Computed example of a mutant assay.
Amino acid sequence: MSDPQSSLQRYPLLATPHVRLQGPVDHAMYQNFRDQLLGAAPEGPLVVAISTLGGDPEVARLMADELRLLREATGREALFLGKVAVYSAGATFMSGFPVDKRFLTRGTRLMLHERQMQSSIELAGPLRALPAVLKAKLAEIEQSIAIEEEGFRAIVAGSQVDFEELRRRAPYNWYIEADEARALGLVLDVI
């Protein structure tokens, strides 16, 4: 285990994130993210810190895409700092950063799992119309699986974890402590 003090000395920018997010990943977090992003200094590396038990994975993907566009348009470096808990949609957000731009604070846990769905299908009406209802729900499920797999590939890209291992462990809520995440190459360092 590396000395957290020396890690922070190597990455002093991480001590004062430009964008600080906490709580559920939802539209309120997205608005807070946008407001802080607009208020951040326009130059130099941008540090985004998050602590979350999860939320809406599509909002997480949206925030990550905002940062991707910023990086591609300006060449600005963006660093991820996970604090305390980076669960579910928080890990989806983390997947938008390359492994060498990801950091966790000591004691932080990642939690990776499959996307969840709760849904009911109402079958009512003419029999010939009912297959379309079922096909639409099946298409939604298939697209959600494809998006999940894209995210899983992004989380493990550049690490020692392969896609199949993540798929195997995801149904059981895979909790990963910060030092283990570093050893697996999912993050660059722990501070």
Score class of each variant (00 low, 15 high):
131 P>W: 14
75 G>R: 15
78 A>R: 04
157 A>R: 11
96 G>P: 01
125 G>Y: 02
142 E>G: 03
107 G>E: 08
80 F>E: 00
80 F>W: 04
69 L>Y: 06
143 Q>H: 14
72 E>S: 10
143 Q>V: 10
91 A>V: 13
115 R>C: 11
104 L>Y: 03
130 L>S: 09
102 R>E: 03
157 A>Q: 14
95 S>T: 02
120 S>D: 15
138 L>P: 04
109 R>F: 13
72 E>F: 05
109 R>V: 11
101 K>R: 09
90 G>M: 08
146 A>V: 15
87 Y>L: 05
116 Q>V: 11
133 V>S: 10
113 H>N: 05
146 A>P: 07
84 V>Q: 08
148 E>M: 13
101 K>P: 00
98 P>H: 09
153 R>V: 00
72 E>A: 11
144 S>R: 12
127 L>W: 12
76 R>N: 06
156 V>H: 05
89 A>P: 02
93 F>H: 01
81 L>F: 00
109 R>D: 09
95 S>G: 13
123 L>F: 12
158 G>K: 04
130 L>P: 04
85 A>I: 09
110 L>A: 04
104 L>G: 00
133 V>Q: 08
109 R>N: 14
97 F>C: 07
155 I>Y: 04
107 G>K: 06
114 E>P: 08
158 G>D: 15
113 H>C: 04
124 A>E: 14
80 F>Y: 09
117 M>P: 00
106 R>L: 13
102 R>S: 06
120 S>P: 00
108 T>S: 10
152 F>G: 03
93 F>S: 02
136 A>G: 12
135 K>V: 15
102 R>M: 11
119 S>L: 10
88 S>W: 09
122 E>Q: 14
94 M>V: 03
152 F>K: 01
116 Q>C: 09
122 E>F: 10
110 L>K: 02
92 T>V: 12
152 F>C: 01
97 F>I: 12
102 R>Q: 08
101 K>L: 05
87 Y>W: 13
134 L>N: 07
133 V>C: 05
108 T>Q: 08
127 L>P: 01
83 K>S: 05
100 D>W: 01
117 M>H: 09
132 A>H: 13
144 S>V: 04
70 L>Y: 09
153 R>K: 10
153 R>A: 14
108 T>A: 13
127 L>V: 08
97 F>D: 03
69 L>D: 15
76 R>C: 10
120 S>K: 10
142 E>Y: 11
100 D>C: 00
104 L>N: 03
96 G>S: 04
90 G>K: 05
71 R>S: 07
142 E>M: 07
78 A>H: 10
96 G>N: 01
79 L>G: 01
114 E>V: 09
88 S>F: 13
86 V>A: 06
154 A>V: 03
100 D>Y: 02
125 G>Q: 06
103 F>K: 00
73 A>E: 14
90 G>Q: 02
129 A>F: 04
120 S>I: 11
85 A>L: 14
112 L>P: 00
104 L>M: 12
128 R>I: 04
124 A>T: 11
122 E>S: 15
122 E>V: 15
156 V>M: 04
152 F>S: 01
129 A>Q: 15
146 A>H: 08
126 P>G: 09
92 T>M: 06
129 A>L: 14
76 R>G: 04
124 A>F: 14
